[in-house]
Amino acid sequence: MKKKRKISIKDISKELGISTTTISFIINNKAKNRISKEVIEKVEDYIEKVGYKPNTTAQTLRTGKSKTIVFMAEDISDPFFSAIAKEMEEIAFENGYKIIYCSTENKKERALELLDLFKDRQVDAFIITPPEGFKDEMEKLIRENKQAVMVFDRYYDDFEHNYVVLDNLASSTRATRYLLDNGFQNVGFVGLKSDISPTLERLQGYQQVMAENGQKDRSVLIPFDEVKTLTGRKKIYDFIKRNPQIDSLLFATNSLAISGLKTLKEMSLKIPEDVSVLTFDDRDLFELYSPPISVISQPVSQLANELIKGTLNLLESDFKESSKFRKVLKGQLIERISSSRVSENNSI
């Protein structure tokens, strides 16, 4: 069977009696204020009728744009990052862009390999959740100025860059103060042992409120690669054993909270009767858990919208200094049974 020949811009030009330049402008969304509405509609209707698909390789060479954005997350399987990715995909698609997803697993070497791979493929922009110890590499990537770069979920203090983040300090401060206001005296904090900004700020917010209220800092920090392991759970177990007076726990990430919930179950500690629980980042599991777990929820839809809006702004402005895009968004405290104060008659 003879393969059907692919339709070209020249074929469309010949059929409609319209120049290839005009058709190219319409296909590449550059027809506004240049070409009449009637001609645009005529070409678009014909393209839809014949099922014309532009040659993406030739289009990239001609325009210098691949219409692709890379989202380099810490872990794309994490419900928080996957929810962000899904919402960004919808917005990007509406604006003519596709998104490629990948995970660094918080490893510097892996992030460098992925950057080299995608820079060779001429992607237009990067949205990156940088791993630990990646500041110099991020600064170099931004300085090269060949792609738009948006940093997500964390940021750096000592060089200019674009970012969209949660207000982690204010969120942690609010969460700790909420537990103290609920009558809990001995709030424990389970965080990540890391130098990334959200980790540092969540610990800082906890310590700040505890100090202001004359309370002792009771915290433990777990290395990233141990969070989901038996070693990480053992550290949480030992921490609780060393601090039997702890009456509430604030977890800095949803992964830490899951390890913590498993540990509390192994220790036969009831929530909230024996210990109250509050964590960062909502997920279905926390709402369905018995009892439901209180959270500081990140505004997923707003974060995704700001990330894509900011990235598209950078692309349209050719990443000029004046186009710097920085957004710090507020978290939402969602109160559930896990953070309730149990009265002396054992009713919640």
Rank of each mutant, 00 (worst) to 15 (best):
L307H: 06
D282I: 11
D153S: 12
G96A: 07
Q185F: 06
L264C: 10
A252V: 11
L269V: 09
R341I: 09
A83Y: 01
Q122K: 15
Y289I: 06
D136G: 01
D120F: 00
K30V: 02
I236F: 04
S77L: 10
P223V: 10
N29E: 13
P54C: 13
T129E: 08
D281G: 09
E321C: 04
L200A: 09
Q215S: 12
I196R: 07
R154Q: 11
S24K: 05
I69E: 09
N145D: 15
I334M: 11
K327G: 12
F319Q: 12
N29M: 08
Q207K: 12
I258D: 04
A304D: 03
F319K: 12
T231G: 06
K140D: 14
K265G: 14
I9M: 01
S255C: 09
D281K: 13
L166W: 01
P223R: 01
M150E: 07
L203H: 07
Y156H: 01
K108Q: 03
P198Q: 11
R5I: 03
M88C: 13
D116A: 15
F81A: 03
G17N: 10
L269H: 02
L166Q: 06
D167F: 03
E335P: 03
S317H: 09
A85S: 13
K37V: 14
V328Y: 06
K30W: 04
V295H: 05
K6G: 07
T199N: 14
A175T: 03
Q208F: 10
E226H: 14
D238I: 00
R177W: 09
A83Q: 06
N186Q: 11
I246S: 03
Q59S: 15
R336W: 03
R62E: 12
P223Y: 09
G260W: 01
T173Y: 05
S297F: 02
E105P: 00
K135D: 05
S194E: 07
N186D: 13
R5W: 01
D158P: 05
K140W: 10
Y52G: 10
L117R: 09
D153K: 02
T263Y: 08
V227Y: 00
N182L: 15
Y46F: 14
F251V: 02
N213K: 14
G260P: 01
N145C: 07
V342M: 08
Y178T: 04
L285V: 14
L112M: 11
V275G: 01
T57K: 14
I18C: 06
V123A: 10
L312H: 08
V50W: 08
S19V: 06
I240A: 01
I40K: 08
K49P: 06
I100P: 06
G64Y: 05
Y289E: 03
D136Y: 06
R177E: 15
V209L: 10
D116L: 13
F239K: 02
D247F: 02
E160M: 00
F251T: 05
N106D: 15
A175V: 08
P54G: 04
A148Q: 04
E212V: 00
E160T: 13
L256T: 04
V190G: 00
E113K: 11
A125Q: 00
I196Y: 00
K146T: 03
K327C: 11
Q332P: 02
V275R: 00
K235H: 11
S219Q: 15
E48Y: 14
M210H: 10
S77D: 12
F325R: 02
D116Y: 10
V277N: 02
L221H: 08
S171Y: 00
P223E: 10
L200G: 05
V275S: 01
